[in-house]
């Protein structure tokens, strides 16, 4: 078990390193320079050159890499080229927004998906087909299109929920949840589709096992068999899949945040991409990867606790 945790940790650290290196290389592979970005259109080449020198952009690549890597470990991403604010401060304000959306969406996807999967597995063929059709449909529509449609019905037509904007948790749980409802639902539908399929096949497999037949033979009530014994066996792959779903939904929230005008990491990524704000870009990538890695680590431990086979490793 300690060895298992150490291995997962090592992979997690490797992932963050890979994310940083990839972005570093991308940023340094262009003609664009931070000096040019910072001074804007009006600057002369000489001024840009001076600014680049000041920012250390002209040092050898390896020196910059080592330097930036060292700073990254201390969560120091420097200053934004556009608004000159500290990148870490800006992003740590935004992180809770994105984390709330993706965590809530993963949970919702897990619950709704499992419920749908179980229903598809235990009810007749008709239900199974309906669930399958639903997941096929949700997998092939873009989430942002779905988001716009949901806004149209729930915010514009029915006026039940706010279409855009964010209300902080500290301003009240009710309004916080309300402001997140539409983005979370939008994101969760695609995830629920994937989870529903895994849960359905997991349930079917579990129900076909021999110990289930034995349980039936000794007169265990059907609901116990289904919702206690089989569901427990089927939940293992679902929990495993949630880790992957979190990565996917975290990525998805980047787009959804921009649709619902939520001040999250995704918005920062979009501003960073539009404005070529290199430090913001690196910060966004590293911090998003860290969130994903930590969540997956937690889910791995959860799986290890649920799965007796893994525990002994």
């Amino acid at each position: 078990m300690p060895l298992y945790i150490a291995k997962r940790l090592a992979i997690g650290v490797g992932t963050i390193w890979a994310a940083f290196t990839l972005t570093f290389l991308l940023v340094h592979s262009t003609d664009n320079s931070p000096g040019a970005v910072r001074l804007g259109m009006g600057a002369t080449p000489e001024e840009v050159e001076v600014e680049n020198e000041r920012l250390g952009w002209n040092r050898p690549l390896l020196t910059q890499y080592a330097d930036d890597l060292g700073k990254m470990v201390r969560l120091d991403f420097g200053q934004s080229l556009i608004n000159r604010g500290d990148v870490r401060d800006q992003l740590s304000d935004r992180l809770p927004v994105t984390a709330s959306i993706s965590v809530l969406a993963t949970l919702l996807a897990g619950i709704v998906g499992t419920a749908l999967g179980v229903v598809a597995a235990v009810r007749g063929r008709g239900t199974a087909k309906a669930v399958n059709a639903f997941s096929g449909f949700s997998l092939s529509i873009p989430s942002f299109w779905l988001g716009v449609v949901l806004v149209y019905f729930f915010a514009i037509r029915l006026d039940l929920l706010p279409a855009t904007g964010y209300s902080r948790f500290s301003e009240g749980v009710g309004s916080w949840l309300q402001s997140l409802a539409l983005p979370v639902i939008t994101l969760a539908i695609g995830g629920a589709a994937v989870v529903a399929r895994m849960a359905a096949s997991g349930m079917r497999e579990a129900l076909a096992r021999e110990y289930i037949t034995t349980l039936r033979a000794i007169g265990t009530p059907e609901w116990r068999i289904r919702y206690i014994h089989a569901l427990r066996a089927a939940s293992l792959p679902v929990v495993g899949a949630l880790g992957v779903q979190f990565i996917v939904l975290f990525g998805g929230s980047v787009i959804i945040e921009n649709l619902f005008a939520l001040p999250g990491i995704g918005q920062a990524a979009l501003f960073g991409a539009t404005g070529n704000d290199f430090p913001i870009l690196i910060g966004v990538v590293v911090m998003s990867t860290a969130v994903v890695v930590i969540t997956n680590l937690v889910l791995d431990l959860l799986t290890a606790v649920l799965d007796p086979k893994l525990r002994t490793r």
Binding site: V254, A269, V284, V292
Partner: peptide, 24 residues
């Protein structure tokens, strides 16, 4: 396998935005 696992846990949308920000 390790390498693939590392790459797989990168949040791809964010990476793509960073790529657009960097290379246009």
């Amino acid at each position: 396998g390790r390498f693939a696992e590392t790459i797989m846990s990168l949040p791809s949308t964010v990476i793509l935005l960073a790529a657009i920000g960097a290379i246009g």
